[in-house]
Design a protein around this nucleic acid. Structure first.
Length: 369
DNA sequence: AATTGCACCAACCGCAGATGA
DNA sequence: GTCATCTGCGGTTGGTGCAAT
């Protein structure tokens, strides 16, 4: 742990890399690949530790790096991703081809954070600063009065689910979830599963983000959202989890919602301290979002209405949700799924870079007491 | 011209997880 | 199971350049 062992063995160079060192490293890796990083400096004739060589390669010498300033689109994407992923710079960087986690981290710390604050948005929570202050006050009061930690108002949490479940056959799947807890006066629990599908790396889902109109969701218009309600009375669900939703709480999402025209109601299984709770779809939102700004939930219809839409009744192919082409609507069909899978296979043949980006799902939990 | 403050960014450090002996 | 080593990640630091004073 800590400093790499090789650093103790001999006095190694630190600090900025000279052009000569860069050339040695570049030549060596171009010819032989990096293999075991710890052996690279010796084989390349460098007085550096393997860790330093690796970092230099990743952050500077790699041929696929994009140079130059970040575009406005890239900056917006980083902000959006940060809202979902937090300081997971490597995961954010994975969505920006040619950019490194270090670069993005620096940009965030030096510019974006400041810019958000100036816009009145808390860079940590991505909520309006005024709301954050209120929450802090409420939290203080709540801590004084509550015997047990409870979920604070409008709390936003993120978690990543390992790419095991659900998955479209043959493809790894990473599920990104964001949960939002609302303490509204409604008496029912609601769970929103917000899905986006994309062919490579650009499609993400964001919901309930408190951005100004200048920060939009422009990457993918193909959004759909399904509203879930618990199938059994579960007043305790997520009410006493001390604000922590862990990745193992989301047990499963029925694959049917990703691979079929949803003749069967999608179901989600969520566990909490008081057991596993099943949720099933109660309504469907089609968000054909091409505008800027936060996503509104629009065109909501009950599940029964959704199943009776002309489109589903006719069983006609929908414009693909899964290819680069912009569809007119966002309904999921077998055809479009297959089309998307075929496109993914093509993409896979070109590169495995996208292996983590095949699908992303965002789950927003809405709880009312 | 010298100094100071700030922004930016490359690189380091410490840690955790994975892997293999 | 334990230990050593390797790899990757995120937080932090320190050097550099530039603008303001």
């Amino acid at each position: 742990m800590g400093r790499h062992s090789c650093c103790y063995k001999q006095k190694l160079r630190k600090g900025l890399w000279s052009p000569e060192e860069d050339e040695k490293l570049l030549n060596y890796i171009t010819k032989h690949g990096h293999g075991c990083w710890s052996s690279v400096p010796k084989l390349a004739g460098l007085q550096r530790c393997g860790k330093s060589c690796r970092l230099r390669w990743i952050n500077y010498l790699r041929p696929d790096l994009k140079r130059g300033a970040f575009s406005q689109q890239e900056e917006n994407l980083i902000i959006e991703l940060h809202a979902v992923l937090g300081n997971r710079w490597s995961q954010i960087a994975a969505q920006l081809p040619g950019r490194t986690d270090n670069e993005i981290k620096n940009l965030w710390n030096s510019c974006l954070k400041k810019r958000l604050r100036q816009s009145g948005i808390d860079p940590n929570t991505h909520k309006p600063l005024s709301e954050v202050e209120n929450d802090n006050e409420k939290s203080l009061t709540s801590n004084k009065t509550n015997q047990k930690g409870s979920v604070s108002s409008n709390e936003v949490m993120s978690l990543m689910i390992e790419p095991t479940k659900p998955s479209i056959e043959g493809y790894p799947l990473e599920v990104s979830t964001t949960s939002k807890i609302n303490n509204s006066s409604s008496s029912s629990h609601e769970l929103f599963l917000d899905t986006r599908f994309g062919s490579s790396s650009s499609y993400f889902s964001f919901q309930n983000l408190n951005y100004g109109s200048n920060i939009g969701i422009s990457e993918n218009p193909n959004a759909s959202s399904i509203c879930f309600t618990p199938t059994s009375t579960s007043s305790q669900i997520m009410s006493d989890t001390n604000s922590v939703i862990t990745s193992n709480m989301l047990h499963s999402v029925s694959p049917s919602i990703f691979s079929t025209p949803t003749h069967v109601k999608p179901t989600v299984s969520v566990s909490s301290v008081d057991g596993v709770h099943n949720w099933e779809a109660s309504s469907y939102n089609n968000i054909n979002n091409t505008n800027n700004g936060a996503l509104p939930l629009q065109e909501e219809m009950k599940w029964s209405e959704y199943l009776n839409t002309p489109f589903l009744m006719q069983n006609q192919p929908s414009p693909s949700m899964y290819t680069e082409a912009k569809p007119e609507t966002g309904f999921i069909t077998d055809e479009s799924c297959t089309s998307w899978q075929q496109q993914q296979q093509q993409n896979f043949q070109l590169s495995d870079i996208y292996s983590k980006d095949l699908q992303r799902f965002s789950v927003a939990f809405g709880q009312s007491m």
